[in-house]
Write a protein that binds this DNA or RNA. Structure first.
Length: 553
RNA sequence: GGCCCCUUGGUCAAGCGGUUAAGACAUCGCCCUUUCACGGCGGGGACAUGGGUUCGAUUCCCGUAGGGGUCACCA
């Protein structure tokens, strides 16, 4: 009996690997085209760090006319949740980061290199496991969990490197006959790699992001097929990325230390290894220290957080791009209106250590992004958001024509306002333009500099009776406010007043403030002329009268 | 603990043997302005630390400290 017989005993019906090697033809891509993938476990939750990887992986594929695909790594049934794949796909869709091939929903997929769901690739892994068994590069291991635990404890007590290797690899040197007998006996087993590595030898590896890294070779006889018949991550990675012809494995740097193993796997299977790019994690400040942004502790770790609070997807992506390549910021400054597709991302310029997450920065980017939107676009985006998260806002925006006017205030010019960072800011921002919201609560007026009630009343009364005319253009409108200022003894021009402040009790700006506060109950609003135009004479008067009424109390 | 990686202002970061050590966010001040934003100008603020190597180290080497990752039949 030899290795081949043992392999046949374990996997009697597996196809020869040549079947798969031929089935998956070479991708017909341009020279230099990069093939990348996103390979999540279907837990449904997409972490900001994962989105970061997707942005990077998809970008480098796109900019080289390559392929970006989605592979679902569901080899751990214990962790799987219902509709996990859908959750991931929906999140990617929310950010406009749909893959070229791979899973489209829980069951359907597109592409010629599938299945793209690992649990459906069981036969493939078995063929390759058999291939290794035939050559004695893998073997069945009958160690029970208890046995392994005992081994670990001994190793710990003796303060030696833990693991299944060397003399500790109890079933490594079992004869084929002994192994076959145990199998026939019904003993349970898993398949391990018969590692050829030596711990005292170093391998040199060049990571696209991390640069040159030296590691000891892997000498652990790691599990390749688990008791449930599914492969471990490592084995599946080698086979899938070979068959799917991934050129660049872009993943989190928690995998960096597995590189020696992965390289070894590729080598023992006779595959050409892909390039690796290990991305540093996004960190979070915590009690003076840093830690990875955590799914459990940090709401902002979930990408759904951004759709919930209404940060535009472009802003999130731009932020991520900015972390990836800081040159993006400069590029954006020089190309304020260019699509990010034009930006060339360089993997080797990525930071090797993890950046602290900065919500202030992301919101700043969001403000800039939104400031470039048209009123129409803002209206649509706000409606989309409000449909899911704020019914009251949705009602407010029912009158589209009016809403467009409100969103159009000081927008579309060279220096647009930057006061909306997320759609959840909108309501507070526009409420006062709606009478039903405006009169809803007890109105408070803080007239700032002018505190004399009689003077305020006089200003409001004069404005209503003498100066306001809704047909005035902006210049005329403002000239009239100046006239009003003059009539109550204030300076017409701020400049004049600044030169001789003792000459007047105040200036036209103070008068404007009174009108503004009476009109909106806020001291900070955008252009008051536009506000009055949109509100119209009737509402303007009603509001000013209301302010006088409150003053009379 | 073993192995691996990292360490430039509050944060993200350029620079990689000779620089007044960029820029962005944040912060502060001034200007613009009918308010607030926007915009413009300016200020404060950094090469973890100790040794080398060198005419010269933020840049190269070694140690120390600090941070991160990893050591599963999880990915």
């Amino acid at each position: 009996m030899d290795y081949k017989d043992l392999a046949n005993l374990i996997f009697p019906n597996s196809k020869d690997i040549s079947y798969y090697e031929e089935k998956y033809k070479n991708r017909n891509l341009d020279e230099g085209a990069i093939v990348t993938r996103f390979a999540p476990s279907p837990t449904g939750f997409v972490h900001l760090g994962s989105l970061y990887q997707v942005v990077v992986a998809r970008k480098v594929a796109k900019q080289t006319n390559g392929v970006f695909f989605l592979r679902v790594e569901d080899t751990d049934q214990k962790r799987e949740i219902e509709n996990g794949v859908t959750g991931i796909i929906e999140s990617l869709k929310d950010f406009g980061l749909t893959p070229d091939e791979g899973m489209k929903d829980e069951i359907n997929e597109i592409g010629n290199y599938g299945p793209y769901k690992q649990s459906l690739r069981k036969e493939i892994y078995e063929s390759y496991a058999k291939y290794l068994l035939e050559q004695g590069k893998a073997y069945p291991c009958f160690a029970t969990p208890e046995e392994l635990e005992e081994m670990r404890q001994k190793q710990e007590a003796a303060k030696i490197r833990p693991g299944y290797y060397g003399v500790w690899a109890k079933y490594r040197n079992l004869s084929v006959e002994e192994a076959a007998e145990k199998i026939k006996n019904g003993d349970s087993y898993i398949i391990r790699l018969r590692s050829e590595g030596k711990e005292d030898r170093k391998i040199k590896h060049h990571d696209v992001i991390k640069g040159n890294v030296d590691f000891p070779e892997n000498d652990q006889d790691i599990v390749i097929i688990k008791a449930d018949g599914l492969p471990t991550y490592h084995f599946a990675h080698a086979i899938d990325d070979h068959l799917m012809q991934t050129t660049h494995v872009i993943r989190g740097d928690e995998w960096l230390s597995s590189v020696p193993l992965h390289l070894q796997l590729f080598q023992m299977l006779g595959f050409k290894a892909p390039k690796y790019a290990h991305i540093a994690p996004i960190m979070k400040e915590d009690e003076g220290g840093k830690r990875k942004l955590s799914k459990r502790k940090d709401p902002e770790a979930a990408v759904s957080y951004y759709t919930e609070i209404g940060v535009p997807k472009e802003a999130v992506i731009e932020y991520l791009l900015n972390i990836a390549n800081s040159s993006f910021e400069l590029w954006r400054k020089q190309n304020p209106n260019t699509s990010i597709n034009e930006f060339e991302l360089q993997l080797n310029k990525m930071s090797v250590s993890g950046a602290l997450f900065d919500i202030v920065k992301i919101l700043d980017i969001a403000k800039t992004v939104i400031s470039k939107y048209s009123a129409e676009k803002i209206y649509e985006e706000t409606i989309n958001w409000a449909e899911n998260y704020d019914k009251e806002l949705l009602e407010l925006l029912e009158n589209k024509e009016y809403a467009l006017k409100v969103f159009g205030i000081e927008r579309g010019n060279a220096k647009p306002r930057k006061d909306i960072a997320k759609w959840s800011d909108v309501k507070e921002n526009i409420e006062y333009m709606y009478d039903n919201k405006f009169y809803e609560k007890e109105l408070e007026y803080d007239y700032q500099k002018i505190i004399d009630k009689d003077l305020i009343k006089k200003i409001l009364k004069l404005y209503i009776e003498k100066y306001y005319n809704e047909n005035d253009d902006k210049q005329m409108w403002f000239d009239k406010i100046k006239d009003l200022a003059e009539e109550v003894g204030f300076a017409r021009e701020v400049k004049e007043w600044k030169q001789e402040p003792e000459k007047w009790p105040g200036h036209v700006g103070d008068i404007s403030t009174v009108l503004r506060v009476a009109l909106t109950s806020k001291s900070n609003t955008p252009d008051m002329y536009e506000i009055m135009q949109i509100l119209g004479k009737e509402k303007v008067f009603k509001r000013l009268e209301k302010a006088m009424e409150v003053l009379n109390k």
